[in-house]
């Protein structure tokens, strides 16, 4: 990734121009050749710097009003085996291992689940609990009650 890639990231991270030739418009804005922008974006897509390109839905507006961050206390020696199993469940959007913050916070596995209602989320979370079985030493669901900010990741100019 070089300074030109960074400029392209800065120019597109809030969104692509909604015109027939968005990459041409980005190129024009940056003083680059359209082919250059296209090649570089494809390369960033191939290398994983761009995860994907498309619509970024607002879960709330789409009726997925119950957004639960389920957090789990799983034995450290088992988390690398169990994490991928949880992550593969169709209703889990993100699944990460994160550090505990004892004494207040003893959870090390995070799985985001989205449903149309809290009942949906609870039934999904009970499926995770079934899957973890005895490795589930405790869990909670943290519901989001307000989006305070959502800009997506931004690279400062």
């Amino acid at each position: 990734m070089d300074s030109t890639d960074r400029k392209i990231i800065q120019a597109t991270q809030a969104g692509l121009p909604l015109v027939s030739q968005p990459y041409h418009q980005v190129a024009e804005q940056l003083g680059l050749q359209p082919e250059d922008v296209i090649v570089r974006m494809q390369r960033m897509l191939d290398s994983g710097i761009i995860r994907r390109i498309g619509v970024v839905p607002n879960h709330y507006a789409l009726g997925y009003r119950a957004n639960g961050m389920s957090v789990w206390d799983v034995p450290d020696h088992d988390v690398l085996r169990l994490g991928p199993l949880v992550g593969q469940l169709p209703f889990v959007s993100h699944c990460y291992r994160r550090p505990r913050h004892l004494p207040e916070w003893h959870y090390n596995l995070f799985a985001m689940v989205h449903g149309r209602s809290r009942e949906d989320v609870e039934s999904q979370v009970s499926q995770i609990a079934d899957l973890l079985g005895e490795a589930n030493l405790g869990h909670e669901i943290l519901y989001s009650t307000r989006i305070l900010k959502k800009t997506g990741l931004r690279l400062a100019a």
Binding site: T12, L16, V55
Partner: peptide
């Protein structure tokens, strides 16, 4: 797409970057 972004049905339209892969 334009209307859905304006209405807030979409948060945005475009690339989703992986900050880790960017070296961040």
């Amino acid at each position: 797409i334009d209307a859905m972004v304006s209405d807030g049905v979409l948060s945005r339209f475009g690339p989703l970057f992986d900050a880790d892969a960017m070296g961040g």
